[in-house]
């Protein structure tokens, strides 16, 4: 397979970024990786699980806040603070998942978004604990990871490992079952699969990796703010999945890269980035409903 050979090459290229890119672009690359990881974790349940997780960023935000709060309010080892983030997100996923999996499609999405908004509202207003709408700034990051480059390398390695883990899970029997549930939940039930429990586990895994992404954001940006859990960000991440291709594994990462690079470029010319994004989305939905990577894959398959 020639396609698989691209991955180590891409990884090596990413390793070399800090040697020839200015600092701002290294920082930008970190942001792309983080959002790519976040979008991939969403796509784990969206594209591969068929669940309309409209408000995925809650888990990203909770992961970020967990790390931030542990770093600023406790004297725990920073390592533990990083480790705690994905688990906090996974626990929240269990709580929300148990309530949501009873429903499907739009109803699932709406219940999920209202639960997510509840979490957002608490974070947004709890000034004494979360800093309210200001968020938390200047989070002390261990010296080792404090520079732009080292934060980038850390992000790169963790993102790569997380993506690899998710990929393995998607090609595992569990992953195939999940995709079977996406295609035909009724038939899955008929061949003896406990659909709801499989969906719940998928939600937990997706929440876990969203928490990883949130933790990485704290290291790269040293801030957290309530917009990390606002529903508009969730929809932006959904757009990343759509643009890249939500039935492909690397589509969301590609989508994140495209959107973040475009936003950076366009923002230097105009303040109307949202307008451009809206137009891009409309065009994609009309002409490339399976996303860019989905389109390329289709072309390759047809020969």
């Amino acid at each position: 397979m020639g396609k698989k050979g691209l991955i180590p090459i891409a990884f090596l290229l990413l390793l070399l970024f800090p040697f020839f890119l200015p600092r701002f672009y290294v920082y930008l690359s970190s942001l792309i990786l983080i959002h790519g990881l976040l979008a991939t974790s969403l796509n784990f349940v969206l594209g591969f699980g068929g669940m309309y997780q409209f408000h995925h960023c809650v888990f990203y935000g909770v992961g970020g806040y967990t790390t931030a709060l542990l770093l600023t309010k406790t004297s725990l080892s920073p390592f533990l603070a990083f480790l705690a983030a994905p688990f906090a997100s996974a626990i929240l996923s269990i709580l929300m998942g148990v309530i949501c999996v009873r429903l499907s499609k739009l109803y699932f999405g709406m219940l999920q978004i209202s639960l997510g908004s509840l979490v957002w509202a608490i974070v947004y207003r709890w000034y004494s604990f979360t800093g309210g709408d200001d968020g938390i700034h200047g989070i002390p990051i261990p010296h080792l990871l404090a520079s732009t480059n080292s934060a980038y390398y850390f992000t790169l390695v963790i993102t790569a490992l997380s993506m690899f883990a998710m990929y393995r899970m998607l090609v595992s029997p569990f992953g195939k079952t999940l995709q079977g549930i996406r295609d035909n939940p009724v038939r899955c039930e008929m061949i003896g699969v406990n659909v709801k429990l499989h969906q719940l586990l998928a939600l937990i895994i997706a929440g876990f990796f969203a928490g990883v992404a949130g933790m990485l954001f704290v290291i790269v940006d040293t801030t957290v703010f309530p917009e990390m859990l606002f529903w508009t960000l969730s929809l932006e991440v959904l757009i990343m999945c759509l643009v890249g291709g939500w039935f492909t594994f690397f589509g969301p990462l590609l989508g994140a890269a495209i959107l973040i690079i475009l936003r950076t470029i366009i923002s230097t010319y105009t303040v109307y980035w949202a307008l451009v994004l809206g137009v891009i989305m409309t065009l994609i939905i009309f002409f490339l409903p399976n996303g860019i990577l989905g389109y390329i894959e289709e072309k390759l398959k047809r020969g």
Binding site: R168, P173, F174, G175, K176, T177, I191, G192, V193, L201
Partner: peptide, 13 residues
């Protein structure tokens, strides 16, 4: 599903 292997997360299917 018959062999109850759908929970296996780690091995390639």
């Amino acid at each position: 599903s018959r062999e109850k292997k759908t929970w296996n997360l780690l091995m390639p299917a």
